[in-house]
Design a protein around this nucleic acid. Structure first.
Length: 283
DNA sequence: CACCATGTTCCTTG
DNA sequence: CCAAGGAACATGGT
């Protein structure tokens, strides 16, 4: 489930696993994943390079590497799309069916698996320039938020998915944050009161921070071959869906609101599902 | 077979 | 040029 919190948890776990590792060979099974970078340019850059650091910006992963001899640093941008996973496994482990990119690290291999191939692993970092502030950063203030919302008549739920407004909110946490703030998803962005703007900033921060905390409690070393796979996220076979159950409205259509018992509703906005409580969220 | 899915980009339309 | 809406991308689950 790659929204900001899932990417954050993955980056936290993956960073120490790949730092200092040198790439011996580059295998690309789906060139589309690299675009707009060409296969040859990607291979040329990564072959022999060493992972130095890994960080996150919005839903993007920023890999910093150093070139073989020159030690010159460069960046690779990663995005998990809808179904992407990145992990390191032993080389004797079976490669997944949809391994888009495989990097030989010696005894281990780095795998970017992506069933639907909506993800990216590319030398083009220009997407970062279009991102709004980090929701947990100090630049995401009520004043900034108010200024941006005033310029738009889009439904607030749709506006929250705009990565240039605030980076990292996806379809799940947009519904969750609006529920926490008590604001109906259909409200035009420019109709929020000053108090609602402030409440929504707080709700976004709280929702994202709580998800990161929860994700951090889920062990990532599981999967088809638990001993040697590091998944970006998921659920431990013994840990019973703890993460999923923490969602208050998302995917709970027809079920009782945890506050008032009313049936949670599902509506479609901008071709995506939105979940909300018609009683608790003010229209 | 139908519909749904955590994301982004591109194309139309106004 | 901008805003808004929707399809497209590709595969799998229910």
């Amino acid at each position: 489930m790659p929204e900001l919190p899932e990417v954050e948890v993955l980056v936290h776990h993956l960073q120490p696993v790949i730092a200092g590792k040198r790439i011996r060979a580059v295998q690309v099974n789906r060139v589309k994943i690299l675009q707009p970078t060409s296969l040859s340019a990607f291979k040329r850059a990564l072959q022999g390079a060493t992972f130095r650091n890994l960080s996150r910006r919005g839903k993007y992963m920023v890999f910093e590497l150093s070139a073989p001899s020159s030690r010159k640093k460069f960046a690779v941008l990663g995005h998990l799309g809808m179904t992407g996973k990145m992990y390191v496994q032993k080389k004797k482990a079976t490669l997944p069916k949809h391994a888009a990119v495989v990097l030989d690290l010696g005894a281990e291999r780095f795998v970017f698996e992506d069933t639907r191939y909506f993800g990216r692993m590319t030398l083009d970092t220009s997407a970062l320039a279009h991102l709004g502030p980090e929701p947990l950063g100090k630049e995401f203030t009520a004043a900034y938020f108010a200024g941006q919302l005033q310029k738009s008549r889009q439904p607030i739920k749709v506006k929250l998915l705009d990565q240039s407004l605030v980076a990292g909110i996806g379809n799940i946490y947009a519904s969750e944050a609006l529920f926490l703030a008590g604001i109906a998803p259909s409200r035009p962005a420019d109709s929020l009161t000053r108090v609602e703007q402030r409440d929504l900033v707080r709700a976004i921060r709280k929702t994202i921070a709580a998800a990161i905390r929860l994700g951090s409690t889920v062990p990532l070393n599981f999967g088809p071959d638990p001993s040697d796979a590091l998944f970006y996220f998921g659920r431990h076979p013994d840990a019973v869906d703890y993460y999923e159950e923490s969602l208050r409205v998302y995917d709970r259509a027809g079920k009782p609101c945890i506050n008032c018992g009313s049936a949670i509703q599902r509506v479609v906005q901008g071709a995506r599902s939105t979940f909300f409580c018609p009683a608790c969220q003010k229209s």
